[in-house]
């Protein structure tokens, strides 16, 4: 069921059901959904992050925080192999999805991305209608759905966008506001029924109200998905995340390259209220970064 090797379509998709709520129906597993084991990521010879170890558990929100350039996006992109698209990018160590190495020789990056969806910093709706934006993922994945209309409605509803767009589904998605576009991108991700949603600063282009809506949405989605979010907004991490990973960049003495390291990982409350590491404390209290 959780096999990500070249199999084309996951069994739960081939069934007649087109409901998106499925993850909670699965038996709870002790295996973390995502697990980094001594992960180092390179761009050509440049070591962007070094020796990262942490795990994301099912139905939890994990926040990645840290100063600019410490490798948060790099780590996030490596989770669904979007790094493959960058020339020279290379991952060492093991990143496992439910115990399976996602960089394993038999693993299909396309299949990884179906299971592990991604929402980008800048809303990037396709230059298509709102409806086609949502239907795109199910269509390219060959998902068998009873009614695409229902699936579109459900995805948009779950992304808290349905009421705003239900009368203009055939209009171009480019006509939506930034916040609506971002929720559309979330809906688009949900529509392919992934198990994990990666979000790279999803609110950085949004106003505080739209930001709060997305945060509410994440709380809502947590029931069914595992979420990893990169954010520069400390309050946001404190508000939404169950676990927090604090990264920082350390200069290499000999080369001067700045390499990202994971300083501390743990319950959000611990990280924000009683961090063990001085650097975390400094960053959280605004004395750094």
């Amino acid at each position: 069921m959780n096999d990500i090797r070249n199999t084309s379509v996951a069994p739960e998709r081939t069934g007649s059901t087109n409901t998106i709520v499925h993850a909670s129906a699965r038996p709870s597993l002790e295996v973390p959904v995502l697990d980094c084991d001594s992960v180092s990521i390179f761009y050509d010879d440049f070591r962007a992050v070094h020796d990262v170890n942490f795990a994301c558990l099912r139905n939890e929100i994990t926040a990645l925080i840290g100063p600019s350039g410490c490798g948060k996006s790099t780590v996030l992109r490596s989770f669904n192999r979007m790094n493959d698209l960058i020339e020279g990018a290379r991952v060492e160590g093991a990143i496992t999805y439910r115990g399976e190495d996602i960089y394993g020789p038999e693993v299909d990056a396309i299949e990884v991305r179906r299971r592990i969806g991604m929402v980008f910093q800048k809303p990037n709706p396709f230059p298509k209608s709102i409806y086609d934006n949502i239907a795109y993922g199910p269509r390219v994945n060959g998902m068998k759905v009873d009614s695409m209309d229902d699936l579109v409605e459900e995805a948009l509803t779950r992304a808290a966008l349905w009421d705003e767009v239900k009368d203009k589904l055939k209009q171009s998605a480019l006509g939506l506001s930034g916040g609506q576009q971002q929720r559309l991108c979330i809906a688009r991700t949900i529509a392919v029924q992934p198990e994990v949603i990666l979000m790279d600063e999803p609110c950085s282009a949004l106003d505080p109200i739209a930001t709060l809506r997305i945060e509410d949405l994440m709380q809502e989605l947590r029931n069914d998905y595992t979420i990893v979010i990169v954010t520069h907004n400390m309050q946001q991490a404190a508000r939404v995340a169950d676990k927090t990973a604090f990264f920082t960049a350390e200069a290499n003495d000999t080369t001067g390259d700045r390499t990202g390291v994971l300083v501390e990982f743990g319950d959000t409350a611990t990280i924000f209220e009683s961090p063990h590491d001085k650097r975390t404390e400094d960053y959280i209290s605004g004395r750094f970064g």
């Binding site: 396309i110 179906r114 994945n141």
Partner: peptide, 12 residues
């Protein structure tokens, strides 16, 4: 970003 968005939903 359009290409990335497409690949991120599992398109080839």
């Amino acid at each position: 970003e359009i290409r990335q968005g497409s690949l991120a939903v599992g398109a080839t």
